[in-house]
């Protein structure tokens, strides 16, 4: 098996051709507010750095923008939280397994953190149980995390329940972490909102939603589907009927709006992705949005 991290890195390399390589690092670095005030050194400005971090006097002397670097008070901990239940083995909107998208997104986030010098941990699991990998630095550790996720997600895994993982974090984690959560299209609910509110009070949260496959519409008639939750068949030609397609579109819109409203109310930045080809741009947009929100 080719290294999962290698795949993530090559993806990032392709992305870097289109945007400045450092931009992602800048965006990532801007995620954390409340930085230390211990000045370290100056470095060249890269797009994505906070404008308020520019040392204008030094820039004036130097002729190009310079950014102040601070010594981090302590190393940040990035906690990757994901669902390894069988929901993630299902198809995404673009038709590839959601698992691949999740691994890609978590790999990019973990690699950015690792380059930033942060430690990366993992909380994953399904409805039957939650597993954790303690936060450490290094690419080998990140590779281990990705493999753990990749091997845990199969159609025979337990039922998905991201709330279990979030509760585990709320129960066991002390200190202020950056939570990077990858999950699928959840339905908003008061219990989940309460839990998110509780976590948001302690942590910085980035939420990355992997879009689920469309269940109704013209295309669904091509191939029957089955629900990974209970293996029940969903006859495609029923879902393809115009009345159901219309009702489904309305219901899906309401569901998305409800989830987005919940994240907005709890102060969590959400991004969503339909396929692994758009992971980089969507993640960049998510970090950008988070910076603006902060």
């Amino acid at each position: 098996m080719a290294s999962l991290l290698q795949r993530v890195k090559s993806k990032m390399a392709i992305f870097a051709h289109r945007k400045a390589r450092g931009m992602l690092d800048g965006e990532y670095g801007s995620v954390f507010r409340g930085r230390s005030l211990d000045f370290d050194d100056l470095r060249a400005y890269v797009p994505g750095d906070e404008v308020r971090d520019i040392d204008w006097k030094a820039s004036a002397r130097h002729g190009s923008p310079l950014v102040k670097r601070y010594v981090a008070v302590r190393r940040q901990t990035v906690l990757l939280v994901t669902d390894t239940g069988r929901n993630m083995a299902a198809e995404s909107r673009d038709g590839e397994p959601k698992k691949d998208i999740a691994v890609m997104a978590l790999g990019v986030a973990g690699y950015l953190a690792q380059r930033h010098g942060d430690v990366v941990g993992l909380v994953c699991g399904d409805g039957h149980g939650t597993r954790t990998i303690p936060a450490k630095a290094g690419e080998a550790h990140l590779e281990r995390i990705l493999r753990e996720i990749d091997s845990a997600i199969t159609l025979d895994s337990g039922p998905s329940r991201i709330e279990a993982q979030l509760e585990h974090v709320a129960r066991t984690v002390k200190g202020r972490f950056l939570l990077f959560v990858v999950a699928d299209e959840l339905a908003a609910g008061p219990d989940l909102e309460q839990l998110l509110r509780r976590l948001r009070a302690q942590h910085e949260i980035l939420w990355f939603t992997v879009r689920d496959a469309d269940l109704a519409g013209e295309d669904s008639a091509m191939r029957d589907a089955f629900s990974v939750a209970d293996s029940a068949a969903l006859p495609g030609h029923l879902a393809a009927s115009p009345a159901i397609t219309e009702a489904y579109a309305k219901a899906a819109g309401e569901r998305d709006a409800g989830r987005q409203a919940m994240f907005r109310r709890t102060g969590i930045t959400e991004g969503h992705v339909t396929g692994s080809s758009t992971v980089m741009t969507e993640l960049f947009a998510l970090l950008e949005r988070h910076r603006r929100a902060g």
Binding site: R86, N87, M88, A89, A90, E91, K98, L155, S160, D184, E185, A187, D212, A213, L215, A216, R223, D224, A225, F226, S227, V228, A229, A232, A233, L234, P235, L238, A239, S241, A243, I244, A247, Y248, A251, A252, R255
Partner: peptide
């Protein structure tokens, strides 16, 4: 032969779909 999909309740909870089924 079928494609696995998650969160099927997005479709199965629709009264229109239940009636059609």
């Amino acid at each position: 032969r079928r494609r696995p999909v998650a969160n099927a309740d997005r479709l199965t909870a629709l009264p229109e779909y239940q009636a059609a089924l």
